[in-house]
């Protein structure tokens, strides 16, 4: 379909102006962070410039940030993060897709109840579960294991993702399931060979969101992983501000930039999945 773009009028110039100014305000902090990662302490505060003064660039901040403390480099903590994040993402994708499929496509008694409970748990603030789960994991003896951060995801507890996939599945024609049934597919085969290929974009969206939220998660690792050796990226970043010795701000900025880099790369690689995914959960009923 051809889109009729607006002709360049006073109104549209005004709109572009608004978009560019707001965009600059939104992006400035991130650029300032990257720029400051190359600066010495003296050059970070007191000015607005993103770039370090000529001849005063300190790329060695990045070397310091890479070797973030005397025991390990930052990659070690990134890998620690992946140790819970990869299982979490995969388990969420599998268990939520399976559950969404059963609720959206199969007929059984109690379906309405299941769907209602998915919506109810979706609306429950996450906070409600924090303390009881901690006490439960403490009894199970899995505190300080990465499993404490993903064990629940094995059991389709990501109601948001289930809901999102159910909504998406409504748009897949039922004839596909029926044709598969006639061809002799059972429920699981139908899911795998018919539904999953069509559902792929929304599964990718779910994986990306799950991964990003996990990267941002701070309270989870703060509570569950208390040994220096299993600290995640978010914990080690937080510690950069804790030291009472003089802080090398450039190093802190460089570490922050390194920590955000994988997220930015993943975001741009999958931006259409993010944008479409968010738009489709709220935008359509």
């Amino acid at each position: 379909m051809e889109v009729n773009y607006e002709k360049l009028s006073l109104g549209s110039i005004l709109r572009y102006l608004v978009l560019i100014i707001v965009g600059l305000i939104l992006m400035y902090p991130l650029f300032w962070m990257i720029g400051s990662a190359f600066k010495g302490n003296m050059d970070i505060f007191g000015g607005l410039s993103v770039f370090p003064p000529e001849g005063a660039a300190r790329p060695e901040n990045f070397a310091m940030a890479w070797q973030i403390n005397k025991n390990h480099n930052i990659l070690f903590y990134f890998l620690n993060t992946l140790k819970f994040l990869i299982p979490k993402t995969l388990l969420t994708a599998i268990s939520c897709t399976l559950t969404a499929y059963v609720v959206a496509r199969l007929s059984f008694k109690g379906k309405k109840f299941v769907f209602t409970m998915i919506v109810v748990t979706l609306l429950m603030p996450e906070l409600a579960f924090r303390i009881p789960l901690y006490l439960m994991y403490s009894k199970l003896g899995i505190l300080n294991t990465y499993a404490s951060l993903y064990i629940a995801d094995l059991f389709a507890t990501g109601s948001f993702f289930i809901f999102m996939e159910i909504q998406f599945m409504r748009s897949i024609p039922r004839e596909l399931d029926e044709a598969a049934k006639i061809d002799g597919c059972n429920a699981l085969q139908t899911l795998w060979y018919v539904i999953v290929p069509v559902l792929k974009p929304i599964i990718i969206t779910a994986c990306l969101l799950c991964f990003m939220w996990g990267m941002n998660d701070f309270q989870g690792p703060l509570i569950y992983l208390t040994k220096p050796t299993n600290a995640t990226l978010s914990i080690i970043l937080k510690q950069q501000l804790d030291g009472d010795a003089a802080i090398v701000y450039g190093k802190v900025f460089a570490a922050s930039a390194i920590a955000l880099a994988p997220m930015v790369i993943i975001f741009f690689a999958g931006s259409r999945y993010f944008v479409d995914g968010v738009a489709s959960t709220g935008g359509k009923e």
């Binding site: 709109r15 978009l19 920590a259």
Partner: peptide, 28 residues
């Protein structure tokens, strides 16, 4: 409004939502 480059702005404005909860942004 049907402006050219809307997709670019849409994506750019969404970045803070994705990164905002990160400890790095709190430091920033």
């Amino acid at each position: 409004f049907k402006l050219k480059g809307v997709n670019f702005f849409r994506t750019a404005y969404y970045i803070p939502s994705i990164l905002g909860g990160n400890v790095a942004v709190s430091i920033l």
